[in-house]
Computed example of a mutant assay.
Amino acid sequence: MSAPTLSPSEAAKSRRPRPGGPGPRPPGGAFAKELRRNLTAHGFLIGAVLCFSFFSWYPMVREFLLAFQKNEDGRTVWAGWSNFTTVFNDPAFGQAWRNTLLFVVLALVLGFVVPFVVAIVINEMRHAQGYLRLLVYLPVMLPPVASVLLFKYFYDPGHGLFNELLGLLHLPEQQWLQDPDTAMLSVVIAATWMNMGGATLIYLAALQGIPGELYEAAELDGAGLLRKIWYVTVPQTRLILSLMLLMQIIATVQVFTEPFLLTNGAGPEGSTTTVVYLIYQYAFNFNNYGAAAALGLVLLVLLAGVSAVYVRLSRAQDD
């Protein structure tokens, strides 16, 4: 028996998709669906990129251009390396770098060691840890200007809190901010108190992640408190310590608020003039934006070099 044949109209009907079947996809449907699903994420991403472009990347590019330009009779002309020559020949250039280096060293001795010690003390306590964490972090929540003005009152040579305490101990009063020998140390103490809260909490989180079995094994070997800190705590927190050291160096090299408010920037005999304050002077006191940009570019290259050394050393240790 021969197979039944279909007419052309019946064959066309048989090739039509059944109702409810998948059917052919419209062109671009998958892309449009994926775009709609990620539209919110793309919106946030575009907003972040625009913010970085206007407030971070554009100022960096603009600073690079200003470092090689200057204004003559209201016109912007190419200056070559003359702005850098002006900065390097300025007598305040060397003094600003020496003061900044002194601030960095003192800030590392106090601002890097003290938060780690405070975190160890809080971690060893069995009660009131939450209260102590709040107490340590409280200065960070205060406005920086209010904190600096509070310390300016403490340093008052007449009836300041610190001189009152020295009087109770029958010790001679100090000219904290008026003496070139103590001005920078006074600024470092204020900066350490203002900024140690965040570092302390980071160290405390790292300490709480150390397994307790390591300390128990160290106690069985007869290790005391200092040996446990040196052979257990420090190696286990080495990564966070090195990262915080880098962040501390970058932050302290750019110090400006504390010396500007405590000692009006320069301090007695220029003892608190920092690199960033010198940039401020070039731009807003001398109206020399080219020199300010040149010194800022020098600072940028220096910090980039420090970061590159840190990355290279970190990779060498990981290998």
Rank of each mutant, 00 (worst) to 15 (best):
L6K: 11
S7F: 03
P8Q: 02
S9T: 12
A12H: 05
A12T: 09
K13G: 06
R15E: 14
P17E: 11
G20F: 12
G21Y: 09
G21Q: 13
P22M: 15
G28F: 11
A30P: 05
A32I: 10
A32S: 13
E34A: 15
E34I: 07
R37L: 04
A41R: 13
L45A: 15
G47L: 09
F55C: 13
F55W: 11
W57R: 12
Y58R: 14
P59L: 05
V61E: 14
L66E: 02
F68A: 10
N71F: 04
N71G: 00
D73S: 10
R75T: 02
T76Y: 01
W78S: 08
A79P: 02
W81L: 13
N83Q: 11
F84G: 07
T86Y: 06
V87C: 01
N89A: 11
D90Q: 12
A92Y: 06
W97R: 03
W97M: 13
T100Y: 08
L101Q: 08
V104N: 00
V104L: 13
F112P: 02
V113K: 07
V114G: 05
I120H: 04
V121T: 14
N123H: 10
L132V: 06
R133V: 09
L134V: 15
L135I: 07
V136M: 08
P139C: 03
L142S: 12
S147G: 09
V148M: 10
K152R: 13
Y155T: 08
P157D: 05
G158P: 02
H159Q: 15
L165H: 12
G167D: 09
L169D: 07
L169R: 05
L171V: 04
L171Y: 03
Q174F: 07
D179K: 02
P180H: 09
P180F: 01
D181T: 14
D181S: 14
A190T: 11
A191L: 03
A191K: 01
T192W: 05
A199C: 08
A199V: 12
T200W: 03
L201E: 07
L207P: 00
L207F: 14
G212L: 14
E213F: 09
D221F: 06
A223H: 07
L225C: 05
K228V: 06
W230V: 10
W230E: 11
T233K: 06
T233L: 03
V234D: 13
P235F: 04
T237M: 14
R238W: 13
I240K: 04
L241G: 02
L245K: 05
L246P: 01
V255Q: 00
F256M: 09
E258Y: 05
F260S: 11
L261C: 00
L261M: 10
L261D: 05
L262Y: 01
N264D: 15
G265T: 02
A266R: 08
G270R: 07
T272V: 12
Q281I: 02
A283Q: 12
A283T: 07
A283H: 06
N287S: 15
A291E: 01
A292I: 04
A293H: 02
L295V: 04
G296H: 09
L297M: 14
V301W: 04
V301F: 15
L303P: 01
A304R: 07
G305Y: 09
G305D: 10
G305H: 11
V306A: 03
S307Y: 10
A316F: 03
A316T: 06
A316K: 04
Q317P: 02
D318G: 15
